[in-house]
Write a protein that binds this DNA or RNA. Structure first.
Length: 514
RNA sequence: GGUCGGUUAGCUCAGCUGGUAGAGCAACGCCCUUUUAAGGCGUGGGUCCUGGGUUCGAACCCCAGACCGGCUACCA
């Protein structure tokens, strides 16, 4: 395959060859003995101290200011940048000045990986620097990086803002935009905090199948695939709920899984075809307990990630301080519209929706209409973390019925920043009721609801052996990460959000005919 | 899916009522041993997203397509 190289790429290839000609290895393999990160030197160095007299750092070469026989440059490692001071006669003590005059001044390009050894000092202008006595090339870069420059006022120049560039070439985005690296560090801290919190309670982290013979546990269209040897279809999971509850049947007190789920639906700034869900099931608990647990865990997570429960998210300050506000679904609708629809039948609900200017499709059942009204009139009002409880039974086929409120299940959703971030219920463990609910779903499916659930005989068999009373929750990790990292789009909390393939990639794939 | 907008140098962008392209940074050459968006002088770099069309002439107008984005629809 031929490459059309730009002028700058050709020059870099020439520089690479000239380095080889000088006897330099452009891609050495030996472990490079890094002793410090840039951040450690920045935080630890005090002027006049005798520490940091011999430090070794490695990173990308990000800027260079040549002043004749000496130069300043910056290298960037995972922790940040460090200025280095390179003088010709220090790195070339002998007669041969090639390392400075040729390699450092001419052949080295921005983006190359280098290693330096030297001592820390403060320059006349007060900048901490490493006075380099050994300079090593660690890896040559052949493509120019769009390096961002920032002036004294904090204005940045040439920042890569094109979303397509950022998402397709995330490695470049991460290299040149430190705040992007930080977003993903925070995401990782968030997940670790949740994991530690649950492990601390004694719950077991498990793994369940991604390839499932039958999809379930949520209402969504699946991706379908095929296993060649078994010659059967498989679905990529849309949820892991039913498998985790099988493990509760098997006797664990608490199981959780951070799971990639897959839904074959639209994409938006809140939806990616593959996304991460954390599901947790705890035996002998109910949804009331789970609300308390959720508040406690997310307060802990906010503190772990940010050291505070008050987070700035867009225009709003969102507080994860316990307790959250709680509404029943009918209560929320009444609160935001003034209409009490708790006693209405399907026709009255349909009319109410119409009166509120909400379009509802004919095939929607009672539960879906209520959900439409809630989604249209209430959800966007809920900025602070809020629990909505008592969902209609029709839209909750895996949740236990409320003991005193007919037509209602013991379920809650957590809403934050106008979006659902979690969904939980007292799990339905009555196998006869569960069979009936599945059959109702089949009926909805026949009416045209493409997301109605399938009937899972093995799951019913498990329930027939007996499942203890159990509380379960699913937390949308990506949406929670958007809140915890103050990002507007799910694409900004996923390293590699789903995109259409680039054209070159498509044409190669088209050649595969089998 | 609908709709509106975008695509010009490695990056960020300008380019008027149509006359075959510019700036800053980056790159290249020369000068400079504590600079910092380093500086000074000089130089090169373009499939104007793709394919058609209109026109003497298209980055610009028209048609079709690709990709990206905003809103919207769908979406537990």
């Amino acid at each position: 395959m031929s490459q059309n190289l730009s002028e700058q790429e050709l020059i870099r290839r020439e520089n690479l060859q000239k380095m080889i000609d000088l006897g330099l290895e452009p891609y050495p393999s030996k472990t490079f003995p890094v002793t410090h990160l840039a951040k450690e030197v920045h935080e630890g160095f005090k002027e006049g101290s005798t520490d940091f007299q011999e430090v070794t750092l490695a990173g990308r070469f990000m800027s260079r200011r040549i002043m004749g026989k000496a130069s300043f440059a910056e290298i960037q490692d995972s922790s940040g940048r460090m200025q280095i001071y390179v003088s010709r006669d220090d790195i070339c003590p002998g007669e041969n000045k090639d390392l400075y005059n040729q390699m450092f001044k001419k052949l080295l390009d921005l983006g190359d990986f280098v290693g330096v050894t030297g001592h820390a000092f403060i320059t006349k202008t007060g900048t901490l620097s490493i006075h380099v006595k050994e300079f090593t090339l660690l890896s040559k870069s052949l493509k120019p990086l769009p390096i961002v420059k920032t002036d004294a006022e904090g204005n940045s120049y040439d920042e890569v803002t094109d979303p397509e560039f950022k998402y397709r070439q995330r490695y470049v985005d991460l290299t040149v935009n430190p705040e992007v690296r930080e977003t993903f560090v925070q995401r990782s801290k968030m997940i670790n905090a949740m994991r530690n919190f649950m492990a601390e309670k004694g719950y077991l982290e498990v793994e369940t199948p991604v390839l499932q013979p039958m999809y379930g546990g949520a209402a969504a269209r699946p991706f379908k695939t095929h296993h060649n040897t078994l010659d059967v279809p498989f679905y990529l999971r849309i949820a892991n709920e039913l498998y985790l509850k099988r493990l509760i049947v098997g006797g664990y007190d608490g199981v959780f899984e951070f799971a990639k789920d897959f839904r074959n639906e639209g994409m938006s700034r809140f939806h990616n075809p593959e996304f991460t869900m954390m599901e947790l099931y705890v035996s002998y608990k109910d949804y009331e307990w789970m609300m308390d647990f959720t508040e406690e865990m997310l307060e802990y997570v906010a503190l772990q990630v940010h050291g505070t429960t008050d987070l700035q998210v867009g225009e709003n300050t969102i507080s994860f301080k316990r307790p959250w506000k709680r509404y029943t679904m009918f209560g929320a609708i009444e609160h935001f519209t003034g209409i009490d629809c708790s006693e209405m039948d399907e026709e009255a609900l349909r009319q109410t929706a119409k009166d509120l200017g909400i379009h509802v499709d004919k095939e929607l059942g009672k539960g879906k209409i209520i959900d439409e009204i809630f989604g249209e009139k209430c959800e966007h009002e809920l900025i602070q973390p809020t629990f909505i409880t008592d969902y209609p039974v029709e839209m909750s086929p895996l949740a236990k019925k409320h003991p005193t409120k007919p037509g209602i299940v013991e379920r809650f959703e957590g809403i934050c920043n106008a979006k659902e971030i979690c969904n939980a219920f007292s799990e339905l463990n009555d196998p006869i009721d569960q069979r009936q609910r599945f059959e109702d779903q089949l009926e909805l499916g026949k009416r045209g609801d493409e997301e109605a659930m399938q009937l899972d005989e093995d799951y019913l068999r498990a329930l027939e052996y007996g499942m203890p009373p159990t509380a379960g929750i699913g937390i949308g990790i990506d949406r929670l990460a958007m809140i915890m990292t103050n990002q507007k789009s799910i694409q900004d909390v996923l390293f590699f959000p789903q995109m259409k393939p680039e054209r070159a990639v498509v044409s190669e794939a088209d050649n595969e005919t089998d």
